[in-house]
């Protein structure tokens, strides 16, 4: 049986796809057979971030409609042979996703995979609903910014009331906070909500903080998940997150401002 993880946020542009790609690659690199599915029908992007956009022949909707088998649609990642990508359809209407269809694909994948990452679209419409409906764990990607925190809170309400686990009165979805685009310098200046602030408002278990980083754009430019850029701060942050999720004890990093010489001179403490 696979563990199904939804990467969600409510708000768009906070880093869901970047996170899905990084986490999926991280889990696969740790030796777990992992599939990552793009639920954003009509606006697919995971294939670009994973660098497999030219190898998409069949997609998620083709599989649901029986026009292709799972094996035909799954794209083997070029960097890791334990990682497979299922692209969203770019042409179909988003109503093409049916609950039964998604459930069947996830069931079939579960037989063969250890982890299934569901990359949710923004919003709380059908695609987002189906991405989280079957989940066991939820990674709530949040930016330290008012609209993102508010939308995350709304998403938490939906996770706890509208998921399969909630409807069947099972143990609730395990929810984790991933704070992305974090800038310790700005937090220190009182210009940005701190990790503690966001945790206090959302009361969520913090899985990790990903700092605002140039490496994220570099990674998406070249279609290589940022976690493979092992020298970068964001890459290391995602590696820590994967390790923590798998139960390793990693102290949190990238939360404090590393002050330079002038910072020390004027900053005190």
């Amino acid at each position: 049986m696979a563990r199904i993880i939804v990467v969600t946020s409510g708000k768009g542009g906070v880093g869901k796809t970047t996170t899905s790609a990084a986490i999926a690659m991280g889990l696969a690199k740790k030796g777990h057979k992992t599939a990552v599915i793009d639920f954003d029908v009509g606006l697919r992007n995971l294939d670009l971030i994973m660098g497999c956009e030219r190898r998409v022949v069949y997609d998620f909707i083709n599989v649901i409609n029986g026009e292709a088998s799972l094996n035909q649609a799954l794209i083997k990642d070029k960097n890791c042979n334990l990682l497979y990508i299922l692209a969203a359809s770019q042409t179909r209407d988003k109503d093409a996703l049916s609950q039964e269809g998604v459930g069947k694909v996830l069931d079939d994948l579960s037989k063969d995979f250890k982890y299934i990452i569901c990359d949710s679209p923004a919003g709380i419409e059908r695609g987002a609903h189906l991405a989280m409906y079957f989940a066991d764990d939820a990674f709530v990607v949040t930016n330290p910014e008012v609209s993102s925190v508010r939308d995350s809170d709304r998403m938490l309400g939906i996770l706890s009331s509208k998921s399969r686990r909630a409807e069947q009165n099972k143990e609730p979805i395990k929810e984790y906070l991933l704070l992305t685009r974090y800038s310790p310098e700005r937090v220190k200046l009182g210009e940005m909500l701190s990790v503690e602030d966001v945790q206090e408002i959302l009361s969520l278990h913090l899985l990790g903080v990903v700092p605002e980083s140039k490496s994220v754009l570099n990674a998406s430019n070249s279609g290589i998940p940022v976690i493979l850029d092992e020298k970068s701060d964001a890459g290391q942050a995602y590696a820590d997150i994967v390790a923590r999720y798998l139960g390793e004890n990693k102290p949190h990093r990238f939360i404090d401002d590393k002050k330079g010489f002038f910072g020390k001179l004027f900053g005190g403490k």
């Binding site: 008012v146 909500l193 408002i201």
Partner: peptide, 11 residues
Amino acid sequence: SSASLAKERLQ
């Protein structure tokens, strides 16, 4: 700070 204002409004 604007961050503490943000926190208050959000809460």
